[in-house]
Amino acid sequence: MTSEPIQITKRPRKIRGTFLVNGEEHDVTYPSHKTLLEVLREELALTGTKHGCELGECGTCTVLIDGEPILSCLALAQAYENTPIETVEGMADGSDLHPLQEAFVEMGAAQCGYCTPGVLLAAKALLEDRPAADRQDIKDALAGNLCRCTGYIKIYEAIELAAARMRGEQAEPAREAFYGR
């Protein structure tokens, strides 16, 4: 038995910073090496942001910085202090779901729901940029978000439905999407 306690070789330095998440300010004391994903989930208890790899490979941890999607697992938290961050928890307006969330519920676009927060945010960024996005635009925008359940099809259909509604059109799901041909 070793008698002396072994000291942690490099005790992580804690730093203080302010994060602007979903329009709210949070002062956080956190280890300086933490990723934005870790600060959101572990320091702020915003567990809506998911992780599937923590290596930048799956898109599950997508959040929006100034409206642009980034992979929070690859983002050093320090670099995003005092920057507007949006997570899935910020999408709804009070108890009213965002039109994208509404359409995902309606179309069954969330099966296990694990990729869903990242996909929703990537879609939100797309539609803000291109309200008339077509199927190819959607595929391009989501090419970095893996979904293992849906085959992406209900996701496309939900985004198209939400986009039409956000443009003010009276859109309803296609019958084949629910019943097949």
Binding site: A92, L97, Y114, L120
Partner: peptide, 21 residues
């Protein structure tokens, strides 16, 4: 009927608790 799943909204809101949450 193609009804929404009873847990769909929670999943889309990021409220569903998975084990690591």
């Amino acid at each position: 009927k193609p009804l929404p799943k009873i847990d769909a909204a929670a999943k889309c809101l990021g409220r569903t608790k998975f084990a690591d949450d």
